[in-house]
Computed example of a mutant assay.
Amino acid sequence: MARLRIGLFGGSFNPPHLAHLIVAEQVREQARLDQVLWMPCHFPPHKNEGELAEPHHRLAMTQLAIEGHPHFAVSDLEIRRGGRSYTIDTLRQLQIHYPEGEILLILGEDNLRTFHTWREPEEIIRRAKLLVYRRPGTTLEDVDPRFLQHVTFVEAPLLEISATEIRQRCRQGRSIRYLVPDPVRHYIYTHRLYQT
């Protein structure tokens, strides 16, 4: 019997937007994943608090963003755990929950470049293969070669959508239609997120 292939897709999702969805679907299809598990962090270790919406809002928006997709699911594991969210802690817990599953960590190429700064990167690659989505026209010269042999690359379209830009547009009262799924857009307006 084949092992369940689970892609762990972590992030602040502040807010989740259409580029997140497209990347997750491309990775799921190319890597033949049974499930993409979206994991909103409680607090990201490499970022300052800044404009981070409360964890329960980011969890709710992520649930709205993936609604109806049969191979996407959301976990509140990191939010329930609290504190700074470290991937190695999450992997340890997930492998207890999915002892027969194969967990693959979904990363952007930018995260691969800083992967050596993560907490316990050597243990991460012992526990999970890395699925890295490439940006067209980029090189890997500055990636730590220790980790490249543990990477499977997938192609993802270049989409100039960023959560930073979406938050800025919200502050300026500009439209975010077609940048986030409609249920997420309504949630942002209803809860007056990113207004100040």
Results as ranks from 00 to 15, higher is better:
Leu104Ser: 08
Thr138Lys: 05
Ser75Met: 14
Leu37Gln: 03
Pro145Asp: 06
Thr114Tyr: 11
Pro44Cys: 01
Ile166Gly: 01
Tyr189Arg: 13
Pro181Thr: 11
Gln30Asp: 02
Ala156Val: 04
Asp34Gly: 13
Asn111Val: 04
Pro136Thr: 14
Tyr98His: 13
Lys47Ala: 00
Asp142Ser: 03
Ile79Ala: 11
Gln195Lys: 10
Ile188Glu: 08
Glu49Gln: 00
Ala128His: 13
Glu123Leu: 14
Arg119Ile: 05
Arg177Lys: 07
Tyr189Thr: 08
Glu29Pro: 03
Leu37Glu: 02
Arg58Asn: 04
His46Glu: 00
Pro40Lys: 07
Cys170Met: 13
Arg171His: 07
Leu4Thr: 12
Tyr178Met: 04
Gln30Met: 09
Gln195Asn: 13
Leu91Met: 14
Ile103Leu: 13
Leu158Tyr: 08
Pro157Ser: 03
Glu25Leu: 15
Leu77Val: 15
Arg28Glu: 13
Phe9Thr: 01
Ala73Tyr: 10
Gln35Ser: 05
Asp142Trp: 07
Pro183Lys: 07
Tyr189Asn: 11
Leu140Asp: 06
Gln26Asp: 10
Ile161Gln: 01
Gly7Asp: 08
His97Lys: 10
Glu100Asp: 12
Ile79Lys: 14
His17Met: 05
Asn14Val: 00
Arg126Ser: 10
Arg3Thr: 09
Ile6Thr: 11
Arg174Ser: 03
Gln149Gly: 08
Ala73Gln: 15
Arg28Met: 11
Ala128Trp: 11
Asn48His: 00
Pro55Trp: 06
Val180Gln: 06
Leu112Ala: 07
Glu100Gln: 14
Arg84Leu: 15
Leu37Val: 02
Leu193Asn: 07
Gly108Val: 03
Gln26Gly: 12
Gln149Arg: 14
Leu159Thr: 05
Arg3His: 13
Phe115Thr: 06
Phe115Asp: 06
Met1Ile: 10
Leu158Phe: 08
Phe153His: 02
Pro183Asp: 09
Asp110Val: 11
Leu21Ala: 13
His116Asp: 10
Asp182Ser: 12
Asn111Thr: 04
Phe9Glu: 01
Arg174Trp: 02
Arg81Glu: 14
Leu91Glu: 09
Thr138Tyr: 14
Pro183Tyr: 01
Val23Gly: 07
Gln26Val: 12
Ile66Val: 15
Tyr187Ala: 09
Arg5Trp: 11
Arg127Pro: 04
Ser175Lys: 03
Gln63Cys: 08
Ile22Phe: 12
